[in-house]
């Protein structure tokens, strides 16, 4: 059984300046994600926001791969990039979102929102850096399948997490029925 206390605390600290290749790639992809997310929440063109969201979510899938969570990465690609963005595009289409620049995409309280977001970012970054300044993730793979492979994830999911899994299926069924009821009622209202 693996110890709960992480081993890299006792191991030699790699240090900030000797960044490994994984860290460099993580930083670059993280910058791409942040840029795409910023464009998503600030652009005036609504369809472009959905397309930049694809870049951000795909970049997060790459980050999952770098954190050795392969199964989560492919689930992210399938569900978020594959279905959620398509749903959002359909939502934009069905609400007759204007093609091209729409000047009223941002609310009037955007400066208040910017203040709140910057304050939250400053506080949280300070706290997180202060808390995890000396912790390292050990991504080395020793033997056997990786920690995030579908074998390990499936074993954990269907051995220890069966009850939440089944409850989640009930929740998905409820969401399905709810979505059908909502769209049926609006269709009956049209006729």
């Amino acid at each position: 059984m693996n110890p709960v206390v992480p081993q890299p605390l006792a191991a030699g600290h790699p240090g900030f300046l000797s960044a490994t290749g994984v860290e460099v790639v993580f930083l670059l992809v993280g910058l791409v994600i942040l840029g795409a997310a910023l464009v998503t929440v600030t652009t005036k063109q609504l369809v472009h926001a959905a397309l930049w969201l694809v870049v951000a979510l795909g970049g997060i899938a790459v980050e999952y791969l770098l954190l050795t969570a392969e199964f989560i990465a492919w689930v992210q690609v399938l569900i978020y990039v594959g279905s959620v963005v398509v749903l959002l595009l359909f939502g934009l289409m069905l609400t007759r979102a204007p093609i091209g620049r729409s000047p009223d995409a941002d609310s009037g309280n955007r400066w208040v929102a910017l203040t709140v977001a910057l304050a939250a970012a400053a506080t949280l970054v300070t706290v997180v850096i202060d808390a995890f300044r000396a912790t390292w993730i050990d991504l080395e793979q020793r033997t056997g399948p990786g920690k995030g492979s579908s074998e390990v994830t499936g074993t954990a999911l269907f051995r220890h997490w069966v009850l939440p899994f089944e409850a989640l299926s009930v929740l998905l069924l409820a969401a399905l029925v709810g979505a059908i009821v909502l769209s049926r009622r609006q269709k009956a209202g049209e006729r």
């Binding site: 993580f26 929440v41 609400t95 009223d104 941002d106 609310s107 309280n109 977001a117 949280l124 970054v125």
Partner: peptide, 21 residues
């Protein structure tokens, strides 16, 4: 990265006007 992404999303929730955005 997660903190910054969360704050970008927070700004979007507060500042956007269209419900889909």
């Amino acid at each position: 990265l997660a903190v910054l992404l969360f704050c970008v999303g927070l700004y979007g929730v507060l500042a956007r006007r269209n419900a889909v955005l």
